[in-house]
């Protein structure tokens, strides 16, 4: 299951469309019902729409090595160094929400 977390209705709608097009099991959440996203195989965060402390929590956990697996983020407001840090932690990073954010570029 893919959990898309966003407070942006446009992006949530886009995520659902992409998920439908690709036949993905995708559900769009907000923070209000985020507990349902705990068990997701992949958690995708729309960082630009989430509270500003989302980014800090991410990096804090990276620093501690206490971050869940299966994570992807997209944001227009990511510096190159932030991007590198996230990618080094195994997080898929993109500027905007497109299909490759939700699925790998190549199937295995």
């Amino acid at each position: 299951m893919i959990a898309y977390l966003s407070h942006d209705q446009v992006n949530s709608s886009l995520a659902r469309r992409i998920g439908h097009r690709l036949g993905l099991d995708l559900i769009a959440f907000t923070l209000k019902d985020a507990d349902q996203a705990v068990a997701a195989d992949l958690l995708v965060l729309d960082l630009d729409s989430l509270p500003s402390d989302t980014r800090s929590k991410l990096f804090l956990r990276i620093g501690r090595g206490e971050l869940r697996s299966g994570l992807a983020v997209h944001s227009y407001q990511m510096s190159a160094s932030e991007t590198r840090t996230l990618q080094a932690a195994g997080i898929r990073v993109a500027r905007r929400l497109t299909a490759p954010v939700l699925v790998p570029a190549r199937s295995r």
């Binding site: 507990d35 705990v38 402390d53 989302t54 991410l58 990096f59 804090l60 697996s69």
Partner: peptide, 26 residues
Amino acid sequence: PTEHWDYNSAPKPETPSPLSQILDPQ
């Protein structure tokens, strides 16, 4: 204007939120 987190700075105090729950390793 938005906040930018400088990950090199001291970590901010944890604020309990649903976000913490879903970011923690499962």
